[in-house]
């Protein structure tokens, strides 16, 4: 979800074709196979998020060289309790409409970078998202650069959960790498039957193994991606970069920009993404 999403629509037209050709999921395949818990934050201690687990990325992306975080997003990320806190057993990331440091919205973006970085495993979180045009909550991972020169998308991006607030029954999982990034990412939507992502908690996860990433929501496996899929999707141009390095976890709520569109008059602020836990298994 990091950058260059202008061809987003094209990507979504291509995805179903790809799936028909390449993603005949085995009905008997188990949703998860990794059950040995190796890292977790249950968000049981009220206050600021545990600094042993989470760092903050502050600002509007300018400092990182990508103003609007590469997507014309409208929010300024802070580590203030107004935007991020742990209370009543959950992590609450709150997007607010307020004038702050030249932006009209504030929110928060938490990363485990430098604190918890891991290659392979089962990464899952139990999350409830906000609703309304312009909200763009996400639970995702970026690869750790080995040198200062290494940049996205070479480092690889795994989007475990993204949602846009005006599609309350739909979430999507994606991967970005060289030859399939931004609007050309490999992605699939999952639509809930008889439920919504903003009114109840759901579990979003991946199982990441050498040469395979499985995406699941609750007990449903809905996407399984391999190097062969990347080959087919990109006519052999794309490179599977997910055997290369560990990744870190990111939780954030973006507001506006290329993907969700900007908030409208009916969008209610403030609202929060609520995270019950993040767990990592081997």
């Amino acid at each position: 979800m990091k950058k260059f999403l202008k061809k987003y629509i094209t990507a979504f037209i291509m995805v179903p074709i790809f799936l028909l050709q390449a993603c005949d999921l085995d009905e008997t395949q188990e949703v998860v196979t990794k059950n040995n818990l190796v890292w977790a934050d249950e968000f049981d201690q009220d206050g600021a998020p545990n600094p042993q687990n989470w760092n903050f990325e502050i600002g509007d992306g300018t400092e990182q060289g990508i103003p609007g975080w590469g997507n014309n997003e409208l929010q300024y990320y802070t580590d203030r309790p107004e935007n991020v806190k742990v209370e009543n057993g959950v992590l609450v990331i709150t997007a607010r409409e307020e004038s702050f440091q030249g932006s009209n919205y504030t929110s928060a973006r938490l990363v485990t970078r430098g604190l918890f970085e891991k290659q392979y495993g089962r990464f899952e979180a139990r999350i409830k998202v906000p609703y309304g045009k312009g909200y763009w909550p996400a639970f995702w991972m970026l690869g750790v650069p080995e040198t200062a020169e290494e940049e996205w998308p070479q480092i690889g991006e795994i989007d475990i959960m993204e949602n846009v607030g005006d599609e309350p029954t739909i979430a999507f999982g994606s991967m970005h790498g060289p030859g399939y990034s931004g609007g050309e990412s490999i992605s699939k939507e999952f639509e809930l039957d008889g439920d919504r992502f903003d009114t109840s908690f759901h579990i979003f996860g991946i199982e990441w193994s050498p040469n395979r990433i499985n995406y699941y929501i609750d007990d449903k496996l809905y996407q399984s991606l391999t190097p062969e899929d990347v080959d087919e999707e990109t006519d052999g141009e794309g490179v599977w970069v997910f055997n290369d390095r560990p990744s870190y976890i990111i939780l954030n709520v973006a507001v506006g920009g290329n993907l969700p569109g900007n908030p409208n008059a009916e969008t209610i602020f403030p609202q929060s993404m609520v995270v019950d836990y993040v767990r990592v298994y081997e």
Partner: peptide, 8 residues
């Protein structure tokens, strides 16, 4: 109908 997809 019981849709389950109405909210808020």
């Amino acid at each position: 109908e019981k849709l389950g997809t109405l909210g808020q």
